[in-house]
Computed example of a mutant assay.
Amino acid sequence: MIGMASSSSLLRMEEIAGKGRGLVAEKSLKAGQIILTESPLILYSASPLYAPSSSPFTNCDHCFRILPSHTTIFRCPSCSHHTFCSQRCLSLAQNSSHSNWVCKALIFLLQHPNPTLLQQHPPERQVQARFIVASHNLFLQSPSQLHTFLSLHGTPDTAIFYVAKFLHSLISPLFPPEGQLSVDLTAQLLAKDRLNSFCLMDPYSPDGPQRSIKAYAIYPKATFFNHDCVPNACRFDYVDTGDEHNTDIVFRLIEDVPAGKEICISYFRIGRDYCTRKRILMEDYGFTCGCDRCKIEANWGENQGEMNSDLPHVRFLQKHVCERKNCAGTMAPLPPKDDVPSNVLECNFCGNLKEI
């Protein structure tokens, strides 16, 4: 049994036909109910080491909140490359995400005697180097937690082994004798990260550029939510809030779920068309979705959804896709109060509230 949002367990893990392990409702659950809140096991920046970030914002290197231009910025006293929003975040980072070893490793990569080794690779490779540093730091601080991460789904392929060999050759000189990571283990880590990481995003702006990814995070329990193109739950994060648990991820139900039914999320925004969904799922996750919506839409022509507005999944999309400009996030009810369902939907992408 995995830990859930309340003292009584709301979910249980089961083998789902054709999917592997998944999460089902332990009892009848209500729309808007929070079913899981989880802190990240691994959290690392999505900014390349050398190439400029696509984000217009500068973030704290521990909590990833935006650094306001008018406030005091706290720099790492050892490297000065990494900045923090408060003395508290700096102190926390020095004992966790920006430990002395991490600081030395990032300095080594940033000041490498042959920087073209990494610069000639795509920016994605530079972000993967950050991930390997963060993973090794987890191994040094808590081997049992790294074991938890390695228990997640994901098997390295030839392409990942190629990347693992390169990154291992680059970073392995920094590994202390008691904490060596092999090429095989590096490949395993990269494979797990590819299938299980969640994105933490820049704030939404209706007239601004497309939201950039500010950080990647691993939430071990949340990785067991399977995908469905008509999900009954969705994720929320509130990174740029003042809460000390701002990097936690929260899952809420979109609709009532009876006991024993699988709870699924969508791995992307639910309004995407069939061909786009099919491509993303195969390229990023290695499977083809066989949900009822996909079976229907596989045979549709252009704009046919508008002519089938009586179909359940079309009505679902009309209700739960946010209509704000530059958004199209998923709208879920606010949590019930005193067991009374909420009549307000919240968008998990832009934060828009809509009364129904």
Rank of each mutant, 00 (worst) to 15 (best):
residue 87 Q to M: 11
residue 336 P to F: 03
residue 214 K to Q: 15
residue 266 S to N: 09
residue 122 P to H: 06
residue 52 P to K: 09
residue 154 G to P: 04
residue 12 R to W: 08
residue 37 T to N: 07
residue 158 T to E: 15
residue 266 S to H: 02
residue 45 S to V: 04
residue 342 S to H: 06
residue 233 A to I: 07
residue 134 A to C: 12
residue 34 I to P: 03
residue 131 F to W: 09
residue 210 Q to S: 15
residue 259 A to K: 12
residue 209 P to R: 14
residue 282 M to Q: 15
residue 148 T to Y: 01
residue 186 T to H: 03
residue 249 I to F: 00
residue 96 S to W: 08
residue 206 P to H: 05
residue 15 E to A: 13
residue 2 I to K: 07
residue 133 V to S: 01
residue 218 I to N: 00
residue 201 M to K: 10
residue 24 V to N: 00
residue 125 R to A: 11
residue 251 F to W: 08
residue 140 L to T: 09
residue 326 N to L: 04
residue 147 H to Q: 14
residue 41 L to V: 12
residue 246 N to I: 04
residue 151 S to N: 13
residue 17 A to T: 15
residue 4 M to R: 02
residue 51 A to M: 09
residue 22 G to E: 01
residue 299 N to E: 15
residue 174 L to P: 02
residue 346 E to I: 13
residue 73 I to C: 12
residue 206 P to K: 01
residue 155 T to G: 07
residue 101 W to H: 09
residue 339 D to V: 03
residue 230 V to Y: 00
residue 57 F to R: 01
residue 226 N to C: 02
residue 231 P to Q: 01
residue 139 F to L: 14
residue 64 F to L: 12
residue 262 E to P: 01
residue 81 H to Q: 09
residue 262 E to C: 06
residue 176 P to A: 05
residue 107 I to M: 13
residue 268 F to G: 08
residue 343 N to C: 08
residue 111 Q to P: 01
residue 193 D to H: 14
residue 266 S to Q: 05
residue 307 M to S: 13
residue 89 C to D: 05
residue 165 K to N: 15
residue 331 M to V: 04
residue 167 L to M: 11
residue 259 A to H: 09
residue 64 F to Q: 10
residue 269 R to G: 11
residue 353 L to A: 05
